[in-house]
Design a binder for these strands. Structure first.
Length: 205
DNA sequence: ATGACGATTTACT
DNA sequence: GTAAATCGTCATA
């Protein structure tokens, strides 16, 4: 039985994700990331900040130099696959795989503007302003209950995670700058591969 | 077997 | 501004 479509929501298919990471990073700004919990609760937020990790040559990427391990295996999967990793012994971060199969590119989702399920997010995040519920890659995974069990899942069906794209009223203004938190130096640390909507108050610090 | 590290967050001076 | 928290993963031995 087909699900009722929300008006204004455009279909997102594999071709939407199968572009260069820097292109996808811009493309998903303004889209809505939706998380459906096992009990059916819908959590969502508008994507307002992203970073592109552009392939084996990218010194900032987990796949630099062609590194391929059980941890980052999903980076090598089809466009539209979810890559979730665990870092600093306490945080998860979520990526959307872009490009072509076997070419490890991905877009890190760095911040959301909360929309649905704000009460759940508040409970999951504890004493923080609504504007900081999802203002960082680890924060949004906490708020949306995203962990490694969602690694390797796909955004291409109405599963636990998917993306909704609204018809834009007007093309949003996008700011760019260097990515955050990289341990590498040089041109890859400086490359303007971080993208955000400067109109949002939910950008990571 | 061991050690160093990390695409971060939070608290504290 | 600086530092602690905290542990799975991977490279080296």
């Amino acid at each position: 039985m087909p699900e009722p479509k929300r008006s204004n929501v455009v279909n997102v298919d594999r071709a939407f994700f199968a572009v260069h990471a820097a292109r996808l990073a811009r493309r998903i700004l303004g889209c809505t990331l939706v998380r459906v919990l096992p009990d059916g609760t819908r959590l969502s937020g508008i994507i307002v900040e992203t970073e592109a990790y552009v392939g084996v040559d990218d010194d900032g990427s987990h796949a630099r130099g062609g590194r391929r391990t059980p941890k980052n295996e999903s980076m090598y999967a089809d466009a539209g696959t979810v890559y979730v990793y665990f870092t600093y012994g306490m945080h998860y971060c979520m990526n959307v795989v872009s490009g072509t199969i076997d070419q490890p590119e991905a877009v890190l989702i760095r911040a959301l503007e909360p929309v649905d399920g704000i009460a759940f997010m508040q409970a999951a995040r504890k004493r923080t302003r609504d504007q900081d519920l999802c203002s960082g890659p680890g924060k949004l995974c906490q708020a949306l209950a995203i962990d490694r069990s969602l690694d390797r899942s796909t955004l291409l069906s109405s599963g636990p995670l998917f993306i909704e794209r609204q018809i834009p009223v007007r093309r949003p203004k996008v700011a760019t700058g260097p990515r955050i938190g990289l341990s590498c130096g040089g041109r890859w640390a400086a490359a303007p591969l971080r993208f955000w909507l400067p109109s949002s108050s939910c950008i990571s610090g």
